[in-house]
């Protein structure tokens, strides 16, 4: 079966700025020849430390950034070959959920309008919008009456629910979730992880889940890709990554995670 998403030799070099003039001729190889597939209904975790290139990879796939080279095929379509005016079509199929959805919302729009914009993209008639907005709010376990309120009135966890509702309202086939629970408190994080698990199962969503938190990746992902310095170090089933990592760097990452169990903690002095 053909994968939903095929990434081949994806590369993004940024010009390196140094000195007063800002041009040195050097490049930063943010993503340096990355290849992987994601099957329909699969959740692939993309993990690595800051600067590893994981977020850049997510943005390239959605063509929020133009690549230096390489390609991405979505349902067989060459994403980078699409003319700019067809990107709107692409946005209906691929959506993104950010770490801090607040930065991604227009503060002057009500929640109803924020989700309504997504519905407009999908061509939902105006008359049906209010009820459809309510439907998506219900999906993220929020009451319909929040539609008339503004993003600043909500807590981080609630905003993340709204961000997820907006992404889902387009009925995408694929979602890039970029650190969606990293900024949340422990208890809120658990709720959003549960919501993502539930929605993924119910809607058979395909997801690229970008995170530096390996424990959350353990709960959510079927497969895991480990990135370092713009390169994929290891890609394997979740079980393999967590039980029998093959690469030294993967082992190093796992070993660095503090274990919430004093009986097994490594750092404990005698």
């Amino acid at each position: 079966m053909q994968p939903l998403l095929e990434v081949r030799n994806l590369t993004k070099h940024f010009p390196a700025k140094s000195g007063m003039t800002g041009s040195s001729g050097n490049v930063v190889k943010a993503v340096d020849g990355v290849s992987f597939d994601i099957a329909q209904g699969e959740v692939l975790g993309l993990v690595g430390e800051s600067g590893s290139g994981k977020s850049t990879t997510g943005r390239l796939i959605l063509r929020l950034l133009e690549p230096t080279s390489g390609n991405v095929h979505f349902e067989g379509k060459d994403v980078f070959a699409l003319p700019k005016h067809q990107l709107r079509e692409l946005r209906k199929e691929m959506q993104i959920v950010f770490q801090d959805p607040y930065g991604a919302f227009n503060p002057r729009l009500t929640v109803g309008n924020i989700i309504g914009e997504a519905l407009e993209l999908r061509g939902v008639p105006k008359g049906n919008r209010a009820s459809t907005v309510a439907h998506y709010l219900e999906m993220v376990q929020m009451p319909a009456n929040v539609a008339s309120r503004y993003p600043h009135e909500f807590s981080g966890g609630q905003r993340q629910r709204i961000g997820i509702a907006r992404a889902l309202a387009v009925e995408p086939k694929f979602i890039v979730a970029d650190e969606p629970v990293s900024a949340l408190d422990v208890s809120t994080q658990a709720e959003i992880v549960n919501l993502l698990l539930d929605l993924q199962k119910r809607l058979n969503l395909t997801m690229l889940f970008i995170s530096h938190d390996l424990s959350v990746v353990r709960v959510l992902c079927d497969r895991v890709a480990v990135m370092q310095h713009g390169l994929l170090v290891e890609v394997a089933d979740s079980e393999q990554i967590f039980r029998a990592p093959q690469q030294e760097y993967t082992r190093e990452l796992l070993a660095a995670v503090p274990i919430p169990d004093p009986a097994r903690a490594r750092r404990k002095a005698a």
Binding site: S187, D213, R218, I259, P260, D261
Partner: peptide, 19 residues
């Protein structure tokens, strides 16, 4: 709080306990 924390040993694809 202690039950809600995901760990490297968490059961995959299983809902977390909430607070």
């Amino acid at each position: 709080l202690l039950k809600s924390i995901p760990t490297l040993d968490s059961a995959p694809k299983t809902q977390l306990a909430t607070v």
